[in-house]
């Protein structure tokens, strides 16, 4: 009995303290080091923030470089197939151009009418000031089962703050949750931690919660509200962060929302620096 206990303690101690050969550090010393780093990072001691920020910037750039071959190969395939479809695409684009030309006149008329109506209502006209919009490239889009996020190549240097809304083609895709000097992390709408106040085009208010899957879920809908398909979902702007009326997606019969922008297909996004209430960020 005592022999087996001795065996256990020898093997246990050896596993923790063993060094020599290729092993320059014992497991125990590295566990202590990892715990120190972990608690310094979690409790946000003053000097760890800039260190972490610098480390993030460096690692994100290296990640972007290291991932280049994996981005390049699928792109080559796409380019080859699009080359063979040029003629067909040209015909299609000509038809679309004609359609949009006719729509443009209509849009101009509606924009003027909208401005005039807002003046009559004396509401604030949220001018989409382009100087307050930052275009950013997606550096890293690593899929994790526990965190749906992307890393963009603009940070505090470009004026990005934590909490700012991120859009693509004017559709909401998420918000900034971590900022570094040269990069930021964006939490996508389908992440489990994402909660956005939204309004449905019938006027009902709800919270759009990420589910960890591709389709977020509508929660806290009015009592007796029955979800039907194809209802547009917009950011309500009640939190003072997201611009009200930013389109998000359309509803499904089961209360989930089909996002207008596929969160797995992002390459460029825009960050809206012109948030309504910076004090809340």
């Amino acid at each position: 009995m005592s022999v087996s206990r001795d065996d256990f303690s020898i093997a246990f101690r050896s596993a923790l303290l063993q060094r020599g050969g290729a092993q320059k550090f014992s497991v125990l010393s590295l566990i202590f080091l990892a715990l120190i780093i972990f608690f310094l990072d979690v409790y946000g001691v003053k000097f760890t923030k800039p260190v972490r920020s610098f480390l993030n910037d460096v690692v994100y750039r290296v990640t972007f470089l290291a991932s280049t071959p994996t981005r390049f190969l699928p792109q080559v395939g796409k380019d080859i197939s699009s080359f063979f479809n040029v003629k067909e695409e040209n015909e299609r684009l000509k038809l679309e151009l004609e359609k949009y030309k006719s729509l443009e006149l209509n849009v101009e008329f509606l924009t003027d009418e909208n401005k005039n109506l807002q003046k009559i209502l004396e509401t604030e006209y949220f001018n989409k000031n382009l100087s307050n919009i930052v275009l950013a490239k997606v550096l890293v889009d690593k899929n994790s089962p526990f965190l749906k996020s992307i890393i963009i190549n603009k940070g505090t240097r470009a004026g990005i703050l934590k909490g700012m809304p991120v859009t693509k083609d004017n559709y909401l895709v998420g918000r900034v949750v971590e900022t570094n000097y040269l990069s930021s992390r964006v939490l996508l709408l389908n992440d489990l931690n994402s909660r956005i106040p939204v309004t449905l085009n019938e006027g009902a208010q709800a919270i759009l919660s990420g589910s960890g899957k591709n389709n977020p879920i509508l929660e806290y809908l009015p009592e007796d509200y029955e979800t039907i398909e194809d209802i547009n979902v917009f950011a309500s702007g009640k939190d003072g962060i997201f611009t009200s009326g930013t389109p998000i997606g359309i509803t499904n019969i089961d209360g989930t929302v089909d996002l207008f922008i596929d969160p797995n297909q992002l390459s460029f996004v825009t960050v809206n620096l012109n948030v309504q209430n910076k004090g809340k960020l």
Partner: peptide
């Protein structure tokens, strides 16, 4: 850093595997 977890948490988990 890449996954956005607190620093050191994956190292600890890997060190347990080594142990």
């Amino acid at each position: 850093v890449v996954m956005g977890f607190p620093l050191g948490i994956s190292s600890l988990s890997y060190l347990i595997i080594i142990f």
